[in-house]
């Protein structure tokens, strides 16, 4: 069990609800992942999709904590207004805050992010900022009132894994009291395991599961990857060495003889 804001959870995998081949596969994959937190969004109501109501009715059957996002927002004002709208629609004060600064790699705008975070914290939101792995930016987000920080592993949807393990490790060491979640860029369960081995509290991903040939099976893979990484962190990884050291006892080795006697 662990604490994420005001919720006590078992799973350390947070999962997205987008990009699945079908609504049923979305439900099946989310269930298989064991995730207890699922990200959602808002968009202009569309008569063709019944305003997204079918999706929401279906997802609600899982009875999970939702984490709405401000995906697609490029300014502080857009992000704050979108967050306010999600709070009314989904009935939660949790918000995954995205303020995009560059369209090419969907890199967060650190300046807008800090400003929006400060405003939303003042309005009573629990802000989960999607940010880069820059230490100073993350410290500013903490100063703004964020208790949870979500640095990227790699740009959204790239599946490249942890681009900068050094920076992520530094964040863990420098922000020991903050809940840290690697968000975005994970492509394989081994990437999730690596993040957890660094001491991250959780990971958040979507594309790697939704775009797998078999999303349900990949969801299970990520579930196990997260668990393996967490167990490794709790157990404590061995120190790396430069020189080999036999694991089998040397004393009593058969046919042993000393060279040069």
């Amino acid at each position: 069990m662990w604490q994420l804001a005001d919720k006590t959870l078992n799973s350390r995998l947070l999962i997205g609800s987008a990009l699945y081949p079908s609504p049923q596969l979305m439900l099946d994959a989310i269930r298989a992942s064991g995730a207890e937190v699922v990200t959602v969004s808002v968009r202009r109501q569309d008569p063709q999709q019944k305003g997204g109501q079918d999706f929401w009715s279906l997802l609600s059957t899982l009875n999970l904590q939702v984490l709405p996002n401000t995906a697609g927002c490029h300014s502080v004002k857009e992000a704050v207004t979108t967050a306010q709208m999600t709070r009314e629609i989904f009935g939660t004060h949790w918000i995954k805050l995205e303020v995009i600064g560059d369209e090419y790699n969907l890199q967060p705008d650190p300046f807008g992010l800090v400003e929006a975070a400060r405003e939303l914290v003042a309005q009573g939101f629990e802000v989960f900022p999607y940010c880069t792995d820059d230490l100073v930016v993350c410290e500013k987000l903490v100063e703004a009132g964020c208790r949870i920080i979500m640095p990227w592993g790699a740009p959204i949807g790239t599946g490249r894994g942890l681009m900068n393990p050094y920076a992520l490790k530094t964040l863990r060491e420098r922000l020991p009291e903050i809940t840290l979640v690697v968000d975005a860029g994970l492509g394989a369960p081994s990437h999730a395991a690596q993040a957890m081995e660094l001491g991250y509290d959780a990971v958040l991903l979507n594309t790697a599961i939704a775009n797998a040939n078999h999303p349900l099976t990949m969801a299970q893979g990520f579930m196990h990857g997260v668990q393996a990484g967490r167990l490794a962190y709790e157990a404590g990884l061995m120190a790396q060495r430069d020189i080999a050291s036999p694991s089998t006892p040397v004393v009593g080795t058969p046919f042993w003889h000393q060279e040069g006697l």
């Binding site: 997205g16 987008a18 305003g51 109501q53 999706f55 997802l59």
Partner: peptide, 10 residues
């Protein structure tokens, strides 16, 4: 006027 509704998100 912007009217929004729930949607899938990552």
């Amino acid at each position: 006027i912007e009217i929004v509704a729930p949607m899938q998100g990552g």
